[in-house]
Design a protein around this nucleic acid. Structure first.
Length: 221
DNA sequence: GCCAACGTTGGC
DNA sequence: GCCAACGTTGGC
């Protein structure tokens, strides 16, 4: 996957920002590192009960763009082609990272294409492994290398995701904004309010509404 | 490629 | 802990 880039410093924990997912390079490593939460075998089960579940929106760039000499392109089709859980790496903004850390196994997320011709929600994925350190931050060759993150005190996190669905027709940013007008269903959607945030929360009503829109379109075809 | 919005940095 | 300068995101 891919994301965006580094910037920051060292107060741990609190704030905000963005980033997207980054390139393929780091994957192997990140996958190895799964030990933190350990149980791979159970990853197909949905661990989170219906209520209390959160939904998410993760951005990645479907077009080629080079960061530290590495192509960070990562589209929904790239995710769909993966056979193993994919680490969502390269997030280098606290607000986005904090959202990653809040994700529970079994929760669902929208896949959003950004920085491209037709930005919008293009499908869904599932969180199959909760957060673990983003080792790509320690690799000088990685697109989002962050020298300030130390292996013995990692600053950044990944979650592992797997592909669930690709929409027959994507839901464009323009439409999302229309649905986000005053009194509309997406009025409070985090991604519309914090447009630079690459990992954002989606509340259950927003999720249901958007899934409904996607289904309606699929059947209208 | 431009640039508005907004997050981050760092002085005070 | 405020806030101005700076840097990045990401749509267009």
């Amino acid at each position: 996957m891919r994301k965006r880039k580094p910037l920051n410093r060292c107060l741990d924990g609190v704030q905000p920002a963005t980033a997207r997912k980054a390139a393929p390079v780091s994957q192997e490593k990140a996958t190895q590192e799964l030990k933190v939460n350990g149980d791979v075998a159970a990853s197909n089960e949905t661990a989170v009960p219906e209520e209390g579940r959160n939904y998410w929106l993760l951005k990645a760039e479907p077009d080629s763009r080079f960061e530290n000499g590495v192509d960070v392109k990562f589209s929904i089709d790239d995710l769909a082609a993966k056979k193993e859980p994919e680490p969502w790496d390269g997030i280098r903004a606290y607000a986005a990272r904090n959202n990653l850390r809040a994700m529970k196994k079994g929760e669902l997320a929208f896949f959003y294409h950004s920085n491209c011709k037709e930005p919008g929600i293009v499908g869904t994925m599932e969180i199959v492994r909760e957060h673990s350190p983003d080792l790509s931050a320690h690799d000088p060759k990685a697109p989002y290398y962050d020298p300030k993150s130390k292996p013995d005190d990692p600053k950044w996190s990944v979650v592992h995701v797997k592909f669930r669905s690709k929409f027959a027709a994507s839901i464009g940013l323009k439409e999302l904004r229309e649905m986000g007008g005053p009194g509309k269903p997406l009025e409070n959607m985090q991604m519309l309010k914090q447009s630079r945030l690459s990992v954002s929360r989606v509340n259950p009503a927003e999720w249901e509404y958007l899934i409904g829109v996607a289904e309606e379109r699929a059947s209208a075809t």
